[in-house]
Every structure is written in C-alpha cells, then in structure tokens.
Design a protein around this nucleic acid. Sequence first.
DNA 1: GGTCGCAATTGGAGCGCTCCATTCAAGTGT
DNA 2: ACACTTGAATGGAGCGCTCCAATTGCGACC
Lengths: 336, 336
Amino acid sequence: MSEKRPTIYDVASAAGVSKSLVSLVLQDSPKVSAVKRASVERAIAELGYRPSRAAATLAASRSRTIGVLVDDFTNLWFVELLKGLRSAVEPRGYRVLVGDVASGGPDAQATLENFLSLEVDALVIAAEVLPAAASGWGIPVVVAGNRTVDLPHAVVVAGDDGRGAELAAEHLIGLGHRRLGHVTGPGEAARLRADSFARTVAGHPGAVLTVRAGAGTLEADGYDAGTRLLRDAPDITAILAANDTMALGVAAALREAGRAVPEDVSLVGFDDSPLAKSHLLDLTSVDYRGVVVGGEVGAVLLQWLGGGNPAAPPQVAPRLMRRGSTQPPRGAAAQG
Amino acid sequence: MSEKRPTIYDVASAAGVSKSLVSLVLQDSPKVSAVKRASVERAIAELGYRPSRAAATLAASRSRTIGVLVDDFTNLWFVELLKGLRSAVEPRGYRVLVGDVASGGPDAQATLENFLSLEVDALVIAAEVLPAAASGWGIPVVVAGNRTVDLPHAVVVAGDDGRGAELAAEHLIGLGHRRLGHVTGPGEAARLRADSFARTVAGHPGAVLTVRAGAGTLEADGYDAGTRLLRDAPDITAILAANDTMALGVAAALREAGRAVPEDVSLVGFDDSPLAKSHLLDLTSVDYRGVVVGGEVGAVLLQWLGGGNPAAPPQVAPRLMRRGSTQPPRGAAAQG
DNA sequence: GGTCGCAATTGGAGCGCTCCATTCAAGTGT
DNA sequence: ACACTTGAATGGAGCGCTCCAATTGCGACC
C-alpha cells in the first residue's frame, strides 16, 4: 500500500547528522544548535517523516499518553472535561485518548485493558463503574468527579457537588418556593447533591422536600422518578433533578401531569449540558464547570508525572446558570 | 511506582518454554500443544503479565488498532456506529480508538496525527470536516456515512439517506399532510435527505414543500431555521428535520409560535437518537441504523486488512420509527 | 601554550516483542 | 530399519526509537 515509512535514520542521513541528533530535535531538547535543528526540520518536512510512537514508547518506556475512561459517551459532561484536560496537557506534549466503559457491554474490562496495554502514562477515571481489577496498575490515576469508586492511590479532582445543590436550593427558596422535590439516582455525585439539597432545604423553616430516586441517571429514570414524585407530592412547585438528562425526563413527567414549566413548577438541572441550553428546555442548571475540572485534572497529572507529589486541588466552585425554567411560584408575593 | 512489569521472557521461564512459544500463545496460534498452552496461560495469570503493545506494534509493524474520527462527541450517532464496529472487529483481535476532530478546536489535524503516529491499521472517518492533509496515509480508510469529504482510495459505507427521507415523506403524506416543511443544514447527508424529500413530495400532486437551511446542524441551527420556516410558511402541518438535534430546535420554534406537536404540526427527526426516544419529544424519527452501518464498516475493514479487496456494501436500509410526534393533520378525513 | 570546562554531537546498547529459518520429536510409508 | 513428512518448539535478527557514556571542538583561563 505504501513504500516503507522513513525512519529516524533516513532523516539523519538526509540532514547530514546522526540519528541521536534527530531524536533530540524530536524531543525539542535545548541542546541542539539552531542551524542543525533547522536542517533536521527541513529533512523531516521533505521526507514526510512521522515518528513511530510504538518505537518511542518502547524505548522510553513512557508513552506520553493519558487515557480517559468515561461511563458512556451519551453522558456529555465528559466533553467539557476533555476540553479542559487537553488544553492543559497537550502543550506539554501529552496526548489524550478516550474510551468508554459502557457501550462495549460486558467488556468494560476490555477498555481498561486496552489502555493499560497501550501503556498510557496515567489514567483519568470519569466513570462511576470500574472493572473488577482494582488498582495496582503502577501509574498515576486521577478520579474526575465525586464517585463511588475507591481507588487506593488515586487523587480525586471534582467540582463541589454539595455547593451546587445548595445554590439550586437557595435559588428556588429565594424565588419563594417552599414545597420542593428532588429527583435523584445512584452514584456518589448524586448522593452528595441530594444530601446537600436536603440539608439546605431543611435549614429553611417552612420548606419541605420530597425525594424520589430513579434506578439509573438517564432520561427514562428521570421520567420514572419524576412521575412518582408528582403522584406522591402533587403540590410541589419546584424540582431539582440530579442531572440535565434526568431533568429532560422530569419535564416529560410534568407535561403529562398537566403542569407547565415554569408557571406551575420550576425545574432545575445539573451539569449545564447542551441539553440545558436548548431552546426547548431553556433549563436553569448548575454548571459543574467541566472545563475547569478538566484543567485541574491536567495540572495534577502534569505535576505527578513530572515527579512531584500529587495533591488534590480544592473542589471547583459550581455556578448556577439561570434560565427560563425557574420563576417564583404562583402567588409568590403573598407567600414571600 | 512499581517493580518492573514482567516481560515475555519472564513468562517463558516461569512456564519452562521459550519466549517464541509464549508469543505464539499470545497470538493464539493453532500450532501450540494444549499442554504447553495451558502452562503458559497459567504463568501469565500468576505473573500478572500484560503484553506491551508498543513492542508488538514495533515488531510486527501492525498495531491491530482501528482509529475512528468523529466530528464532535455531542453528535451521538457515532455511539451506535462504534457499537456495531466494535462487535465486528473485536472478536478478530482488533481494538478501536475514538477521537474527535472538533472539540480540540484548531487542532483537528492533531487528532489525525495522533492516530497516524499511533500507527493505526485503518481509519474510519465519521466526520464531515477533515484536516487539510489529504490521504496518502498508506492505510485503509473507510468513510462512514455520506459525507462531503472526498478521499481518493476510501470506501464509503453508509445508510441510504435518500430512502430515509423518502420514508419520512411517505409517512407524512400518507397521514394526509400536504403542506410540508423541511429544516436542513450543511453536509452531504443533509443534502441527500433534502433532495430526496423534495423529490418525493414533488411526486405527490397537491403537496407543497418549503425548505429552510440552518448554518450548521445543531440545535440552535434547527431553532433558527425552524423559526424562519414557520414565519415564511405559517400554514405547514408537518416538518422533517435533518437530524434529531435540529428537531429539538424546531420543537422549540414550534412552541414559541404557539403550534402544538403533533396536534398542529407533525415533526419528524432523523437518526433515532436517544433524544428522539425521550418522553418529552417522543419523536418519530428515521432510524439510520448506526449499529448495522458500524458492522458493515467492520466487515469491510476486516476484509481489507485481511488482504482482500475492499468493496462498498449496499447502503443500509433505514427504518421509520413512528412515535408520538406525528399524526394526521386536523380535518384529515376531509382532506384525505 | 597547555589544560580545563562546557556545549554540541555521536555511537551503542537495549526496550519487548514478532517472524523466520531452523531444529527437534514423533509418526508414515515402504 | 530407513529416509521422509509433518507438527511443535526454539534461537536470532531486527522493528524504530531513547538514553547514556563517550567524543569532539572550541573559547577561556592561568
């Protein structure tokens, strides 16, 4: 299909230097004279040389690659995480690879093995479920987000889920809502959100909360839990969903129950995903600030990979993004 | 961080065989006796040995890895593509890596380079935009979906976009709709869908079509084009959107215009994504059958990588998934 | 002018595998 | 009993790099 790729030796002879010098140029070492560097770079361009990562990885026993494990590609918050992570590590010569633990079905393990056999230098876990094989992978591991997984030597970098739920509660109570609902699901982040939401609501005399949990954290789970919530507490005027996807389900449950958003019931999501920003939902949502979290993950990793001691940065402060799905309850002035 | 990973030599001596035999077991060659195979496998398990892909790739000058390039992780149809692709190639020992050409911003090129330097054995292009550097990569390339990119030696594997739009048109016309709208966007697939939709509608005397295009194919583009469509052709009773995401935008435009779905206007999407299946939209959508397309992509690739001649399979036949967003227009019986 | 120091450059020894040619063991046929 | 075939197992040569120790060139310093 093609006439053998050029190697470092071809570049070296074309530039009239040794292969070692070419290698130094590739790693842009400071100890190469400008003139030789230029001629090597010219040779690289002329030959269309592309370094072999397999050879580099083998020789250096280091791949300069970071693997990111996500649960499920449909759970979009990883997109922002990735953006932040990449912009932090790519300038330093690291590449990022993503893989999902879900879509492959039973082979969650396979994705992990895939990364490990690719000899990634570090792993970012942005997934709730993790394959059986506990750690002991011999590489830095950062857990992104608050999760149930408990990896011995991993550093956790996350947004402040509790604070996010608190912001949502304060917003709703500030608007005048007193009969609140919460739709939650499995997972550590959901638990933190639910606990904090409950605590904050409890701190306001006269405010009551009803919580219903879905079996998962998808749209259908939000719909299901939302339906139950509305049946069991028909008088609520505001709902916080554990994430935007579940909020979509809750919105459907509300429509079926004949309750308008935001006139009858205010709805708040979590993650500030593209869905929240859609014109149809126009959903007030807690921005988890995935890009910032991703940047922090990158910073921790660079520090760690550079031989430093990894330290978990402070939790990233979330922000409330107010949109059209929340407003004061009917007769708020009277209740106020 | 860890005491040196075991190599093939360690396994060999633990199992009392030669490194070559271990290598044969790893590639599960048929020419290994059952008894030796068992003892090698035992040694592998005991040592926790994990083969180095870098070394294997270097030695074999073949990585047994397929790279998939997607536009944007938020465009979910790739998830199904991936599922089909993986189930086709993983049993044959290939691994799949995904990368996006968009989120990195300017460095669309970077993702491509990343894959090429990883020495992937083949590339699947599931993206509309492609980095400048045209082909000449020396590896099999399959384009998934109908796209504008024109790669010299690439094989195209796609669903039948034209037939999909035809199904949608027939469905709507069959329900009695005569004043139709279409919201489209850039890209080859959208063009094929729009052309076919227009052709099919034109084939029905008395049916008229208004088309508006968005600047892109996202929710906001659907909202924008949908708003213009409703302003310019206020009497339409049915709309086909070029994809589900745009349909979400169109749904918002409809709500703002005070038109109910499906009572006033029927809405059809394209892709049958999770969004279409959500309870809120409950969107009738053309199922592009991404899993099947992915499987075909895998089959073509296996054939190609096995030394055979690549042949584009017939276009995958789409299916119309009828849901709650379409119904006969008001007074259909009279019009019928 | 000799020697030291430093920066720039180089050759060589692997990294952990695969693949090929070869050897070895055990039948087959005559 | 002998060469001959076949299947199983092995050693060696590399794949294309990185890294280290060694070498070279050259101005500075006494």
